[in-house]
Nucleic acid binder design. Structure first.
Lengths: 238, 238
DNA sequence: CGCCAACTTGATAACATTCAATGTAGGTGG
DNA sequence: CCACCTACATTGAATGTTATCAAGTTGGCG
């Protein structure tokens, strides 16, 4: 029930209010979400949860960046995604998270009890559609990543990755050229199915070909975006 | 409008009625779906749709098997999934399919207008939950595949694939050992990020190690399932 | 200033690819 | 019924891209 006076809630002035999963809800409806939302700060290296944990919560990244990964018993790691401000996290099958998460930077997330979100969907079909839409988008992105992992060369992988990072930065209004690399070479390698050394060598190669320029603070200038696109899509003349 | 006498509809006696997306609907509710469903036969090699086509329809595979794939401009191909009887197909972002499809065998599918399904979700929240659940499952499967493509050796890929095929066959009540391989070596290669030759060599190696046995009609006996699991998960002593 | 972690570079090796040839099964027509 | 054809699978030899092992180099921070 709404009170006569408006009480501030966690969604007031939220930086991702109009981009995240909640963007489809109007001011009245968002109150329902706000009632079950809680803002939690996190720091670089924090684990939000591990593969196998009971999937009690869903999250929206409000600030900062996070990586998702899976491990093989011998320690080999595959990063399955990088999430940024506005991204949704926590779809789970079998009531158990199927991957682990670690923060790339400090930031904030919005935590929501899964059971309450699912109940809310029945009252707010718009929210259900929105989540299905986000899930669909994630599937499409995953298929692109399969194409990258299964069929692209190291150079094609790097070019694709840098362009993707830049596009994502543009979407959330951050600088897209130069674009910030919020992760280290090891994370890039484990995302692209390469080793640290190959990532390093390939970055050097892109740099020497004058396609990119590395700058202070992990910034990367995409010098020849057209050429990078050609390489990324496999049209690159080697 | 329901008539006084029951009219048979496409869902009556449907072979996947109790396993597919529609499994959550009761007999009354399924009528709503039946009104917008149409059974379509297909044949080996048929393309259901191509990447870039307008995503007007959703499908449930009723009988047979289908592959989903993406192409690079130079012809390199990545198969992003194999679908079997009971599987759902056609989630799309941007109102456009992001991948192409080709039938592996003849079969039947159930076609539903996307717009009508989306409208129906508002009346039947159960259906919305079901689709979100299926989408989540697809994301989880995609992440497993990324781990496979990015971090597993050829032998680990093949062992994982054969076990997955067998598990899927078991789920739909088909023979899971021996298990039927409904696709050729080229499709296996494009699914696992390998070449035909490597798939062939690796199958030979598994056969000579007495882990599998190839039989008539593309059947594969999984002789030592435990050992295959160890290999698939990267614990294999090589 | 010096230490440590992350990144880069170099030399070598391995696994998978590529190119090429052979083998096998299913289908068609003489 | 067999010969032939085609498509697909297997096997072999050589090449190549990326991984592995091993030094160096850089940069941030106490």
């Amino acid at each position: 029930m709404s009170a006569v006076v408006n009480v501030p809630h966690p969604c007031d002035g939220c930086e991702v209010r109009h981009r995240a999963a909640c963007a489809v809800l109007n001011d009245d409806e968002i109150g329902r979400l706000a009632d079950i939302a809680r803002i939690i700060p996190f720091h670089s290296g924090d684990n939000l949860f591990f593969e196998g944990d009971s999937a009690d919560d869903m999250f929206v990244i409000v600030k900062g960046a996070v990586k998702l990964y899976k491990l093989l018993p011998d320690g080999r790691r595959q990063i399955t995604g990088f999430l940024f401000a506005g991204d949704f996290l926590g779809l789970a099958f079998n009531d158990t998270y199927q991957y682990s998460t670690e923060a790339l930077s400090s930031g904030e997330l919005c935590r929501l009890k899964r059971s309450k979100v699912e109940a809310l969907i029945d009252d707010l079909p718009k929210l259900g559609h929105r989540l299905l839409n986000l899930a669909t988008h994630e599937i499409v992105a995953a298929q692109d990543q399969m194409l990258l992992l299964g069929r692209k060369s190291a150079q094609e992988k790097l070019a694709s990755f840098l362009l993707w990072l830049s596009e994502r930065a543009a979407q959330r209004g951050d600088s897209y050229n130069p674009v910030h690399l919020p992760m280290g070479r090891a994370d890039m390698a484990d995302y692209l199915g390469l080793t640290v050394e190959t990532v390093s060598r390939t970055m050097t190669r892109l740099r020497k070909s004058a396609l990119v320029k590395l700058a202070e603070g992990n910034m990367v200038h995409l010098v020849d975006i057209e050429a990078l696109h050609e390489i990324a899509d496999g049209d690159g003349a080697d």
